[in-house]
Amino acid sequence: MAPLARFENVGLRYGTDAEVLRDIGFRLDPGSFMFLIGASGAGKTSLLKLLYLNRRPTRGRVTLFGEDIGRVERARLPAMRRRIGVVFQDFRLVDHLTSFDNVALPLRIAGVPEEEVRADVEEMLDWVGLTKRAHARPRTLSGGEQQRLAIARAVIGRPELLLADEPTGNVDPKMAERLLRLFQEMNRLGTTVVVATHAMHLLPHVPAAKVLRLERGEMKDPTGTIRHPPGAPAGTRA
């Protein structure tokens, strides 16, 4: 099976600074679920940026949907991005739009008919428990509500690849588990899911997930098979 994404000896640097990612190599199969773990500054967000096409690698090769993203024409990127859903660490909600319009944004960009947009968005807002806040602006929402809104926007287009950067950072444990169930459900329906997190307690909820650990920009678990790093309590994966 052709991988959905493949990293080969990938390096990334911002400007002339030192590399934030070094010699990254792994494959992401279609329909798989992967946790990306590591301390703050380990390079999780930078790796996600490569996956959601915010950056091109400065060396090595990243292949996504069969395209070498270091060489793919800029004009082709929007279509590729529409196959990806992203939950940004800082949410990146659009302040002047209501919750409803924020969630509707990917569908409207894709040109989905407005009747379908309305039905889908209402269903999604109901799922994340924000129906009553449909007309609220993001800045009037709590941190948890904003996070749920960001997740709703990321999954509304039923993306082939869902990337989530610390998606449970601002929600209570109960909501965190609920959101994780949403990701699992999407994964079950065929979406490839990558979750960057330092919430190790979430890992046992997805036993089949591959775990990729980053440390100072380098992979410490290239095969994804190290499930019990030293110091982790028995029975947990971290």
């Binding site: 915010n54 004009a75 929007p78 991005r81 992203v86 990146r92 659009v94 302040d95 990917p106 960009i109």
Partner: peptide, 12 residues
């Protein structure tokens, strides 16, 4: 910032 978000979610 908004334009960047629009781009990242697939706007041409």
């Amino acid at each position: 910032e908004t334009i960047n978000v629009l781009h990242l979610i697939g706007a041409e």
